[in-house]
């Protein structure tokens, strides 16, 4: 009897410790993207401050960095100089695209006037593109290779070093 209790108790405790270990070692705000390794969802969205619409397909054949952001998001402010600097340096080698999420066009234009804009920004008015990309918060950045495959996703503001490391993945032939 005591032996049986000990064995069952050990198994239950080991299972609980295992579950706790897995849970504590995982960031609950991070969602693994099932899009990685799959084609990037298509979209066509209006460009901020213009009547033009940009479709993702327009950039097929070129590596892309698609950054979901918003003017009300402080970490996006911190990340903005990193993205604009990299876009300026890389020129035509990589296409950067900002997708603004749950925001107001006037505020977006004001933000870009004050802080600069090195690449196009489109407006995801009804959040459908954010949903298709599985966005759970901003900033979130998707790295898409020249074949239109999502190579990586990053949650949170990118540092210049992190951006370089992810860019290496899409620039690799």
């Amino acid at each position: 009897m005591n032996r049986t209790v000990l064995i069952i108790g050990t198994i239950v405790t080991a299972a609980l410790v295992g579950v706790l270990f897995l849970g504590l070692g995982h960031d609950p705000s991070h969602i693994d993207s099932p899009l990685v390794g799959n084609p990037a969802p298509s979209f066509a969205l209006k460009v901020a401050g213009s009547n033009e619409t940009i479709a993702l397909t327009k950039f097929r054949g070129k590596p892309m960095v698609v950054n979901f952001w918003a003017t009300w998001c402080r970490p996006c402010w911190e990340e903005h100089p990193t993205l604009t600097a990299a876009a300026g340096e890389l020129g035509d080698r990589v296409q950067f695209l900002g997708v603004v999420f749950q925001d107001d066009e006037a505020k977006i234009l004001d933000f870009m006037r004050q802080r600069g804009a090195a690449y196009p920004t489109v407006i995801d008015e009804r959040g459908k593109t954010a949903i298709a990309y599985g966005v759970g918060g901003v900033p979130e950045t998707f790295f898409i290779d020249a074949n239109g495959i999502v190579v990586a996703k990053y949650d949170g503001p990118l540092s210049p070093e992190q951006l370089q490391s992810y860019l290496a993945k899409v620039l690799t032939p």
Partner: peptide, 9 residues
Amino acid sequence: ILTLILLIG
């Protein structure tokens, strides 16, 4: 008001 074209579905 500009029309938003969405290809997602």
